[in-house]
């Protein structure tokens, strides 16, 4: 019961916040609404028992990415003295695209849940078996990340380093 109430509160925050992000006129307010959305998504992760993912979401998206976004807005708006107002011109296209994506996700979700309901008990997923033995899913998460998913994990870190160096190079030449 409590979980259902919490879910609806979080869902309401996410939907209203996301609407505010795309329809808001003031860029800074859009950024703050995005913060609310990201925090509520972290709340959804907690409801699903993924504490690690939730706090990493807060740390990286709210604590780092969003701060950079706000920073950029602040620099462009108050230093140049221009007020940037957002006027979205292609709302219709955006609405249509959003509806399509929503329909796709809903369709996938419904069909997948039907598939999963068919064979839950037959084969036990090794990941689920790991989860049952551990007292926190962080350990399982770390183990899997450094064993089964080591290649994507390392690839992602190399990719990030490349992006970082690329950004440095671009910033240098612009000087």
């Amino acid at each position: 019961m409590g979980e259902v109430i919490a879910f609806y509160i979080l869902a309401l925050i996410i939907v209203l916040g996301a609407l505010a992000v795309v329809t808001g006129r003031n860029l800074f307010h859009c950024g703050l609404s995005l913060a609310a959305v990201l925090l509520a998504v972290a709340g959804l992760f907690i409801l699903n028992g993924a504490e690690f993912l939730a706090w990493v979401q807060v740390l990286i998206y709210v604590g780092a990415v969003l701060v950079i976004i706000l920073y950029a807005i602040m620099l462009s708006e108050n230093i140049t003295g221009e007020r940037i107002l957002l006027i979205s011109q292609n709302r219709g296209v955006g609405f249509a695209a959003a509806t399509l994506v929503f329909a796709l996700i809903a369709f996938l979700g419904i069909s997948l849940s039907g598939l999963l309901a068919g064979h839950t008990s037959s084969v036990k997923d090794p990941v689920l078996a790991l989860l049952e033995g551990a007292d926190s899913n962080v350990i399982v998460f770390g183990t899997l990340l450094l064993t089964r998913y080591i290649l994507p994990f390392e690839f992602a870190s190399v990719f990030l380093v490349i992006a970082l160096i690329g950004a440095l190079v671009i910033a240098r030449t612009a000087e």
Partner: peptide
């Protein structure tokens, strides 16, 4: 069980 991570993430929100 993720106390340290919680501390880091919560305190990073202060900047905003």
């Amino acid at each position: 069980n993720v106390g340290v991570l919680y501390l880091l993430s919560i305190s990073s929100v202060t900047v905003i």
